[in-house]
């Protein structure tokens, strides 16, 4: 568990960072909180020759408003998210999910940018970003572009990031006032990735579901939007039969790997239960 040797760079601006990345090519990797990258390096599953530490770039940190969107700098830590009143008030599901990531030590270092850019299906933020309709700003030497979270994930550790690009911020539309939300995560212990998790954001009208988005974590090689499941609950009052249909529709798109958390069948089964529980809790806290 000793990493190989690497060179360390600490640029002071996004421009310098992307220049370094494109000059150094494939052998260079951005370093954010290091809580996904460094463990991989210790196992020598990742052996970057150059680490471009993004901590020296003030512009990448902070939470601000842009119209109806919350814009979060890539280097904002999970702890910063938990400390933000704006997040707690306008996007409580982000607060709830951040609190379910590992432990305080990890959250002090781990960043939202690293979490969503990593491409690990076990990360909690990606499915949540898809559920909330977020988009990511990617910047390279050629300029900036925005990519929807829903279009970003291509496979385990494969994303829309092009070589030389970094993710600079995440932009999330603030959900409607009175919306219901829940992030249900089954894990074996603190510090464990989800056996299965489901994010639900919905609005209710007259006791019936008016709008709904459902995201799924760690039940496929990429995070998923469970569109059919969400469609199935619109216009219902989440009666038992509807919940069953929704859970089944969600389970139908899951393809988890068997691991120490359990066999495929179990992970799909509890994935469905997470969906059911998240829907019920979201409906209950919607106003």
């Amino acid at each position: 568990m000793i990493p190989g040797s690497f060179s360390y760079h600490r640029p002071a601006s996004v421009a310098d960072a992307v220049k370094l990345l494109s000059d150094l090519g494939e052998e260079a990797r951005p370093l954010a909180g290091g809580h996904s990258l460094v463990p991989m390096m210790k196992l020598r599953l990742a052996t970057p020759a150059h680490l471009i530490d993004l901590h020296g770039i003030p512009a990448l940190k902070g939470i601000s408003r842009s119209g109806n969107n919350l814009v979060i700098g890539a280097m904002t830590t999970q702890h910063d998210l938990l400390a933000s009143e704006d997040v707690a008030k306008s996007m409580p599901i982000l607060h709830e999910a951040a609190l379910l990531i590992a432990d305080p030590q990890v959250r002090y270092r781990g960043t939202i940018g690293g979490n969503v850019a990593n491409g690990d299906p076990g990360n909690d933020m990606p499915a949540l970003m898809m559920t909330l309709g977020a988009s990511y700003r990617l910047e390279g030497t050629g300029g900036a572009r925005d990519v929807a979270a829903a279009d970003f994930y291509q496979g385990a550790y494969f994303t829309a990031l092009e070589p030389g690009e970094i993710l600079t911020s995440v932009s999330i539309p603030v959900p409607a006032a009175g919306h219901g939300y829940a992030y249900e995560k089954l894990k074996r212990k603190v510090g464990d990735y989800a056996t299965a998790a489901a994010a639900v954001v919905l609005t209710m009208a007259g006791g019936k579901v008016a709008t709904c988005a459902i995201g799924l974590t760690n039940v496929h090689e990429t995070p998923l939007l469970a569109a059919d499941a969400a469609a199935a609950v619109i216009g219902t009052s989440l009666d038992a039969a509807t919940l069953k249909t929704a859970a089944a529709a969600a389970a139908a798109i899951m393809a988890p790997a068997a691991d120490a958390r359990g066999p495929v069948e179990y992970r799909k089964h509890v994935g469905g239960i997470m969906v059911t529980r998240a829907l019920q809790r979201a409906a209950a806290n919607a106003k």
Partner: peptide, 16 residues
Amino acid sequence: VVTGSFMDFFMPTAVE
């Protein structure tokens, strides 16, 4: 051997 680290070898914390 498939349980070679504390990610898979169950080591409870104070929470559990």
